[in-house]
Design a protein around this nucleic acid. Structure first.
Lengths: 111, 111
DNA sequence: TTATATACATAATTCACTTATGTATTAGTC
DNA sequence: GACTAATACATAAGTGAATTATGTATATAA
């Protein structure tokens, strides 16, 4: 991940889950490209963070996968499970709360 | 530090600098209490993070200190140097930018 | 008198990330 | 036809900002 590096810590799961919620079924590389686009090149997910996190969310039952072969190329599509869908809401709410708290502490408007 | 723990990562310097800017000269323990109050009990700075960070900012010339003895008790007051004042602006801007980016990626309003 | 709050400090540990490395296919280009 | 860049996955080693744990000491309230 990139962009004011330290700040991104702890937001990766939230980003992955929310992008999957908004876009449905996606594969890893596709997610990196979508996030890059949505963030105007500011958030560049690194593979070393991306894949382990996807695997972890899958192991926890938040994501389900489907392997599709395109020519000789393998793609692993991820999508949210029912549990994953609740987790998205939780994570996004957490982030919104956090931002509100930071806004009070720093007396800054994030409008 | 506490509260959705991972999200706080990378925000400690920003919090310390901004609170010092807004309140002038403060000592460590006082900062923890002020942040606790401003965050409505949601951000509880831990000493293990607080003191090393204050020392680091001092070593970098961002903060200057003044030791005051109250009875037999020693207090170390911190305040911003000129360099520290520019750093506050930089850090706060970084955070605002980051929040804006997150807002685009997650399609969430932080109002 | 004894627990809690005040006040500082540092060492050991954790863990989400970055960086580095590896494999392989597909598309563009010179 | 050869080479580079983009696509697509994966994992291991290393980093660094935090937490947790520990230590010292004074002041205050029950």
């Amino acid at each position: 991940m990139m962009h004011s590096p330290e700040l991104l810590k702890g937001t990766l799961q939230t980003i992955l889950l929310k992008v999957l919620k908004d876009n449905g079924r996606m594969y890893g590389y596709e997610i990196t490209q979508r996030v890059k686009e949505l963030s105007d090149e500011r958030i560049l997910l690194t593979e070393g963070a991306l894949y382990p996190t996807l695997h972890k969310l899958e192991a926890e039952g938040m994501l389900k996968t489907e392997v599709v072969t395109i020519g000789k190329r393998v793609r692993k599509y991820y999508s949210l499970t029912a549990e994953g869908k609740s987790l998205v809401k939780e994570r996004v709410n957490e982030l919104v709360d956090f931002i509100k708290t930071m806004s009070s502490v720093l007396k800054v408007e994030f409008a």
